[in-house]
Write a protein that binds this DNA or RNA. Structure first.
Lengths: 139, 139
DNA sequence: AATCGGTTCATACTAAAGTACTAAAATCCT
DNA sequence: AGGATTTTAGTACTTTAGTATGAACCGATT
């Protein structure tokens, strides 16, 4: 992360120096005015700044998407329960989850209830919140 | 939206012209080299580009974890409804939200129901999901 | 063979959520 | 000031969620 920053800024300085050399030649040859050179440099770095911020924003969004599988086991959540949890978080009702997993609604109720105990919550909306806090799901 | 873009670019052009005038004086006075002026302009516009993208990301709110306030209005969600939504997402029950906002539970039910219509959902768990998709809340 | 964890399902119940109205205030806007 | 919107609140009802308990089944472990 720090390495990348150093690399980017080094590249920028080099790019700037190259531009300066080029501008010197064109200026001395009388092909272009100083104003035009400065305007081009400004435009270039405006675009570079835009691009850098864009990449920065993308990496920020990606880095938060890790799932802590160890914590799932640590909480004693079984495979099937986790499967139910994933559907629950999508916003499905018990009946809908039951249909999706080809089991009865009462089965889902059992899984959901034991999930609540393991997550130490009382409602499914709280379960969503806790799952997010524990990095158990892809937010 | 378009007006803002025009305004921003007009400001940029004016800023550039001002910088050019300043650079002319300093260059002719021999106080600074052309290279330094160009470097300063480059740095300035790098920062401007960074800043512009940041604002752009806020309004679009796609990559970053920023809240899209415009979409809240676009969906017709009122201030109070949004307040209720925030508590709902925390995992609070209607009664708990009512106590937190010092109103009755039936009032919360009214707000929640109209939120569901505006978010086009049927359950509060779905509302949480939709709010996340619309970047209406801080996930 | 007996035990344990996980999955399945049922019944019966209570609690919470959600819908569909109606309506009175408070606030905002011009 | 007057109209529109927001916020508030109620009643009555249906649906979904959640709890408690018991029980059958299966695969792996000891």
């Amino acid at each position: 992360m720090v390495k990348k920053t150093i690399f980017v800024f080094s590249s920028l300085i080099i790019a700037l120096l190259v531009l300066l050399q080029l501008s010197k030649y064109t200026y001395m040859a009388g092909d272009a005015s100083v104003e035009l050179v400065i305007a081009l440099v400004a435009l270039t770095f405006l675009v570079v700044g835009f691009y850098l911020k864009k990449n920065n924003a993308q990496t920020n969004a990606i880095e938060t998407g890790e799932i802590d599988f160890k914590k799932i086991k640590a909480l004693g959540i079984s495979d099937r329960e986790y499967e139910v949890l994933q559907h629950l978080i999508k916003g499905l009702s018990n009946k809908e989850i039951a249909d999706a997993l080809f089991v009865s609604e009462s089965t889902i109720k059992t899984h959901v209830s034991s999930l609540f105990v393991k997550l130490d919550v009382k409602r499914r909306t709280q379960a969503i919140q806790k799952a997010k806090e524990h990095q158990i799901i892809d937010a």
